[in-house]
Computed example of a mutant assay.
Amino acid sequence: MLRSALVSFVLSAAAVSIHAQTPPPAVAYPPGGPATSTTAPAPMLLWPNGAPGAQGDADDDKPTLTAFIPAQNPTKAAVVVAPGGGYTHLATEKEGTMFAQWLNAQGVAAFVLKYRLGPKYHHPIEIGDAQRAIRTVRARATEWGIDKGKVGMMGSSAGGHLAASTGVLFDDGLATDDAIDHESSRPDFVILCYPVIRLDAPYMHSGSRKMLLGETPDDALVEKMSLTGLVNSKTPPTFLYTTTDDKTVPVMNSVLWYEALVKAGIPVEMHAFQHGSHGSGLAQADPALREWPNLLLHWLQANGWAAKP
């Protein structure tokens, strides 16, 4: 069934590849190697006067954005990066800071998002934090040398669910006294790494569902936040990276998202590697998986979001 589905997707004129274990060239890092958390810039509060729905004044009540601005950004593109962690913690180092430094090495601005988490916070708090991050980048685009029309969203695992959510749950701006709210929250492109998509059986990630929606969510909310039914002609172009034998988030999450995008006529490229554990990040220690950042770079270059060599 999976094989026939993938063949069908290829015939739909979108890009998909299944990778065997072939060693590729290593991806380029910035000078000095991959970033560590000690080199990251200082985070900024998304809402300096207090976040909507905040339940206190602790660190976990304060969503932030950390800006990584490259010395040169020829295409003026930017990516908001949402680390994964099952909506209960954030893999900020591997799926945030390191991704941001990699994007900087390609001449792309990056912004690592710290969003609020369960079990303290549930939907729609998380999507609200992500939307605010996208709006903030657009509102300060001139300051950071960014084109408002080239702001993407990247996420891994549960962060991938959040990034995919921004691609189907967005608006053109809000009528408030806050100028940041006037900006669109729609990302211009989306990058998903082994994402959670479905929050229902048989392919759900039960931990993400519980942390995002609570113990006993309404069936209609579960279906809505399983996202595939929300895809339409305005959903942004998407790059997908996953592994077929992922034991944590079933590969069918990516396959079903790919299928929904193809049916809606959305440009999409998916790379499903044969083997690989969940949460691989840049995967530089794996001779096969370390190819995926190069594939992402080619996709960014082909679409004008990273400069061609």
Results as ranks from 00 to 15, higher is better:
residue 161 H to V: 02
residue 282 L to K: 06
residue 92 T to A: 07
residue 215 E to P: 01
residue 174 L to V: 10
residue 126 E to V: 05
residue 50 G to L: 08
residue 207 G to I: 00
residue 225 M to R: 07
residue 236 P to G: 15
residue 103 L to G: 15
residue 113 L to R: 04
residue 256 L to F: 14
residue 2 L to A: 07
residue 151 V to C: 10
residue 158 A to R: 02
residue 263 K to F: 05
residue 179 A to Q: 08
residue 208 S to D: 13
residue 242 T to M: 06
residue 286 D to C: 13
residue 12 S to A: 14
residue 65 L to D: 06
residue 119 P to V: 00
residue 214 G to H: 06
residue 191 I to G: 14
residue 177 D to R: 02
residue 205 H to D: 10
residue 308 K to A: 14
residue 190 V to W: 05
residue 175 A to K: 03
residue 264 A to Y: 00
residue 167 G to R: 04
residue 236 P to C: 13
residue 136 T to P: 02
residue 131 Q to R: 06
residue 152 G to C: 04
residue 131 Q to P: 04
residue 246 D to Q: 07
residue 126 E to L: 07
residue 188 D to H: 12
residue 19 H to A: 09
residue 213 L to G: 15
residue 219 D to F: 09
residue 116 R to L: 11
residue 244 T to L: 13
residue 273 F to C: 08
residue 185 S to M: 12
residue 213 L to F: 12
residue 151 V to W: 08
residue 125 I to D: 15
residue 113 L to K: 03
residue 298 H to S: 15
residue 72 Q to T: 12
residue 253 N to F: 10
residue 2 L to P: 00
residue 239 F to G: 08
residue 275 H to D: 08
residue 241 Y to P: 13
residue 82 A to M: 07
residue 245 D to W: 04
residue 8 S to Y: 01
residue 9 F to R: 01
residue 222 V to E: 09
residue 288 A to D: 13
residue 47 W to K: 05
residue 136 T to K: 00
residue 114 K to D: 14
residue 81 V to Y: 11
residue 232 N to I: 03
residue 271 H to V: 02
residue 22 T to P: 12
residue 219 D to M: 07
residue 159 G to A: 12
residue 148 K to H: 12
residue 85 G to V: 12
residue 189 F to P: 13
residue 84 G to H: 09
residue 251 V to P: 15
residue 123 H to M: 05
residue 279 G to D: 00
residue 31 P to L: 02
residue 203 Y to H: 08
residue 92 T to E: 11
residue 158 A to Y: 04
residue 78 A to D: 06
residue 73 N to W: 02
residue 51 A to H: 10
residue 203 Y to I: 01
residue 144 W to I: 03
residue 39 T to K: 14
residue 178 D to H: 05
residue 21 Q to S: 15
residue 71 A to I: 03
residue 97 T to N: 15
residue 14 A to C: 06
residue 237 P to K: 07
residue 192 L to F: 14
residue 299 W to V: 05
residue 40 A to C: 14
residue 89 H to Y: 14
residue 188 D to A: 09
residue 124 P to M: 03
residue 115 Y to H: 14
residue 74 P to A: 06
residue 245 D to V: 10
residue 267 P to V: 01
residue 143 E to C: 01
residue 216 T to N: 13
residue 135 R to I: 05
residue 292 W to A: 11
residue 303 N to L: 01
residue 24 P to R: 00
residue 83 P to D: 04
residue 51 A to W: 04
residue 141 A to V: 01
residue 95 E to M: 06
residue 242 T to F: 11
residue 273 F to Q: 08
residue 181 D to L: 05
residue 218 D to E: 13
residue 180 I to N: 09
residue 39 T to W: 11
residue 149 G to S: 15
residue 149 G to V: 05
residue 49 N to C: 10
residue 212 L to Y: 13
residue 260 A to K: 05
residue 33 G to H: 08
residue 262 V to T: 09
residue 278 H to V: 03
residue 189 F to A: 09
residue 11 L to M: 11
residue 299 W to L: 07
residue 192 L to Q: 13
residue 69 I to L: 14
residue 124 P to V: 07
residue 116 R to Q: 09
residue 296 L to R: 03
residue 219 D to T: 11
residue 270 M to H: 04
residue 168 V to A: 13
residue 24 P to F: 00
residue 219 D to W: 03
residue 307 A to D: 09
residue 75 T to C: 15
residue 118 G to P: 07
residue 193 C to N: 10
residue 166 T to C: 13
residue 195 P to A: 14
residue 274 Q to I: 03
residue 200 D to S: 08
residue 110 A to P: 11
residue 300 L to Q: 03
residue 51 A to P: 12
residue 29 Y to P: 12
residue 212 L to S: 14
